[in-house]
Design a protein around this nucleic acid. Structure first.
Lengths: 166, 166
DNA sequence: CTCATTATTGCAATTTAGTCGCAACTCATG
DNA sequence: CATGAGTTGCGACTAAATTGCAATAATGAG
């Protein structure tokens, strides 16, 4: 997701002693400019529009590097569409991802409570947190509304499941 | 993970109108009795010890069913070892999974704050939560200790990364 | 209890996502 | 601008999960 990005990822990569190859520049730029969460295949596709020689392996290797440097976070978005992963530049403030399993919409949410929870985890368990990923699945407001107004006598059991799960 | 299980998953499956096949019985029993988070391949292997004819497709289909019925939850455990998923019977109370990226240890943590956070999400966004998955990656207490006492002059940059990330 | 219906399973091929070894290339430094 | 270690492209490979279809078996009716 695009969020006004003060940090320049490229600089951080260079500062850590990694080479600024043209492939890395391209890939990082795309991730930073994307206003969607991108998956590896999409990233590759977008990158190839700028540099057709870019290889899939490089995409994965670059993502690995950025993950290790904690510059990007990897998301599952509740695996609504297959097993692929999505990536976003690590935001200044952590947020929760809410994935609607009916329409696929992704909402974001951040709150003091989420920050608190992380402090609490660290304090009470002694665990040293590097990354925290909270993903929620369910129905977005619109879909929740739609579902509840659909049938006046809501179905139960197998048939309800089958129709509601699709 | 094994947690004193009042609910009998089999009964819930039957109550929803699904057939109690011998395969489902076997698989559900294994999941309920497991004291580890099991992945699909392990589940298949364990199931085959009881019934050698059980097929991988059935394992995945059963897991899908149990997920849809909200009887089991799917976990990534931060993908510490490959891309496979892990499964646990949905516990009475939600908990966080803490995955140590050094030793692979999985810790669990639950707190009032986590519950609160979920209420807050629902209240403030109107999102209807079906499942919430909070996974944390980092260093468990033992590994955190080990890392900090390792070098008196902590490394920086690329080399530190390379050695610490392995 | 037996039968008929239909959900469920096994099989094996297939898809999807990601990984790896190695030769060739190129970025940063001197 | 030469050097050489870090990085890339290639392509084959592995891991994880899915699918279509014929065969099988659980369930409810009779």
């Amino acid at each position: 997701m695009e969020r006004s990005q003060r940090r320049l990822l490229l600089d951080e990569v260079a500062a850590k002693g990694f080479r600024l190859t043209s492939q890395r520049k391209t890939l990082i730029q795309i991730i930073q400019q994307s206003r969607q969460h991108v998956d590896a295949a999409t990233l590759l596709e977008l990158a190839r529009k700028r540099d057709p020689r870019i290889n899939r392996a490089t995409v994965y290797r670059t993502l690995d590097l950025l993950k290790k440097l904690q510059l990007v976070d990897e998301l599952d978005l509740m695996h609504l569409t297959g097993e692929k992963h999505y990536y976003e530049v690590r935001p200044d403030r952590q947020h929760v991802h809410l994935a609607c399993c009916r329409c696929g919409r992704i909402m974001e949410f951040s709150s003091e409570t989420f920050d608190q929870l992380q402090s609490e985890i660290a304090a009470q368990t002694g665990f040293e947190i590097q990354v925290a990923r909270l993903e929620v699945g369910g129905n977005c407001p619109a879909c929740a509304e739609a579902m509840h107004s659909a049938t006046s006598a809501p179905e139960e059991g197998k048939d309800a499941l089958k129709s509601s799960v699709d």
